[in-house]
Amino acid sequence: MEVLTEIKQAVMGLLSRREYSRCEIERKYLSRFDANALSEVLDQCEEMGYQSDQRCAESLVRNKISQGYGLLKILQEGRRKGLDELYINAALTEANPDWFAIATELYQRKFAKEPEQPDRKAYEKRMRYITSRGFSFDQAKAAHEYHLESIKNYPN
């Protein structure tokens, strides 16, 4: 089998499952294939529309927002995948997420069943969890305050 055909089959098999950034594909196959041949195949895949970093960024943003991740985590994941921040920022602008609402929804989902404990340790644990998901401290604090208000207003 010709080398270019083998590379193309491998890349197409990968892209048939989900969107991959060019950088991810290069990392995966550089040890297996010649760099110049791989680059040539990836150029062809881009030209034919099979691989697109822009589409990959859009997919990443949609998936991470739906999974309850914040801006910082999305940017970090985009850098890990080797995506240009311009693509990520464009996808974020298109999605126009309400980070405070997403953080609040995550907080409610994660901590709704736990009894509200007014101690500092529980508060810090909750803030660490929300911020570890990529939300700012202000967003985490707003989610916590909303949760406290909803508990107060909920009839027993």
Rank of each mutant, 00 (worst) to 15 (best):
V41I: 13
R32W: 07
Q54W: 07
L106N: 09
R128M: 11
K28P: 01
A140C: 12
P155R: 02
Y20I: 05
R133Y: 11
L30N: 09
A57K: 02
L15Y: 06
L38E: 04
L148F: 09
A142Y: 06
S132E: 05
Q9M: 06
R109C: 07
S21R: 05
C45H: 05
G134I: 05
D43Q: 15
G68A: 00
T5K: 06
E116V: 15
Y50W: 14
G78I: 00
G82L: 00
D43S: 15
W99F: 15
Y107S: 10
A122I: 12
Q108D: 11
E85L: 06
T104S: 15
R32K: 14
L30K: 07
P118Q: 14
E6M: 08
D84M: 02
L83P: 00
L38D: 04
Y29C: 04
Y87L: 02
R109L: 10
K110E: 09
Q117D: 15
L42D: 04
E116G: 13
E94L: 10
G78W: 00
I7P: 04
S150N: 12
Y146H: 13
I88W: 01
L86S: 11
Y29K: 03
L75A: 04
E47A: 14
I88F: 00
Y129T: 14
E116P: 11
R128S: 13
L14H: 05
I25N: 05
E46F: 12
K8H: 11
S59F: 04
K141L: 15
K113P: 03
E85T: 05
V3N: 07
G68Q: 03
E24M: 02
K73V: 00
R17N: 07
I65D: 09
S59R: 02
G70E: 03
F33E: 08
M127W: 09
R17S: 08
Y69I: 01
Y146E: 12
W99S: 12
E40K: 12
I74W: 01
A90V: 13
K125D: 10
E24N: 01
E145A: 14
R32D: 08
Y123T: 10
G82R: 00
S132A: 08
A91Q: 06
S16H: 10
F135E: 11
L30E: 07
D98A: 10
N36A: 14
Q117P: 07
N36K: 14
Y20M: 10
A101E: 13
F137H: 13
V3R: 10
H144E: 15
K110Q: 12
Q139E: 15
D138Y: 08
I65N: 05
A101Q: 13
E114I: 14
K141N: 15
Y50R: 15
D138F: 08
Q117K: 15
E114R: 15
D138S: 12
R109V: 03
Y87T: 06
L106S: 11
M48C: 02
E114S: 15
A143Y: 06
V41L: 05
F111P: 10
L42H: 06
K110P: 03
E19A: 03
I151V: 15
S31P: 02
Y69F: 08
Y107A: 13
V3T: 08
A10F: 07
F100E: 11
